[in-house]
Simulated assay, not measured.
Amino acid sequence: MTFQTKIADPALRMRAAWAEAVCFALAHSHPIDGAAICAAYLETAETGGPLLGDPFGLVVGDARLWAASAPPHELAAYTLAGLERLPKSQLSTGTRKTAFMAIWRSFNDHDRAAFLCAVRGANYGRE
């Protein structure tokens, strides 16, 4: 017998059954797949910014406060370390695009054009 049979409200009983099914599926998934599924779900469930499982916004708020007061060398060091880790993380393409756009917006028009030329030159003949 499962725990949801003790719930009188049919809607809550259905929610409990779905939650139990999700737990079963995650428990029987490869850890990498389970992490990717959870990260993707959290991205769709978030509101007001890239919370990634921080329902009260404390991590994001703390990060913004720290970034606003960090000296440039620390800000660059932590940002670069995070960007190096990004491809190995379980973050979705959408989240990685958001990070890229934040960097892109920091470039002026001249730097954007130079970057595009460099990328096109590096990929010349592969298109």
Rank of each mutant, 00 (worst) to 15 (best):
K6P: 00
I7K: 07
A8V: 11
A8E: 09
P10W: 13
L12K: 12
R13V: 07
A16F: 06
A17S: 10
L26K: 07
H30R: 11
D33T: 05
D33W: 01
A35W: 05
A36M: 10
C38P: 02
A39G: 02
A40Y: 02
A45M: 01
G53F: 10
P55F: 04
G57E: 01
G57W: 04
G57A: 06
G61P: 02
A63M: 14
L65P: 00
L65R: 15
W66Q: 06
P71V: 08
P72V: 12
H73M: 14
H73V: 12
A76H: 12
Y78L: 10
Y78C: 13
L80E: 04
L86T: 00
P87V: 06
P87W: 04
P87I: 08
K88L: 06
L91I: 04
G94F: 01
T95D: 06
T95V: 10
R96E: 01
A102M: 00
I103P: 00
W104I: 00
S106M: 00
D109M: 03
H110W: 01
D111Q: 15
D111T: 13
R112T: 03
A113F: 10
V119G: 03
G121A: 11
G121S: 08
G121H: 11
Y124K: 15
Y124P: 00
E127N: 08
E127S: 14
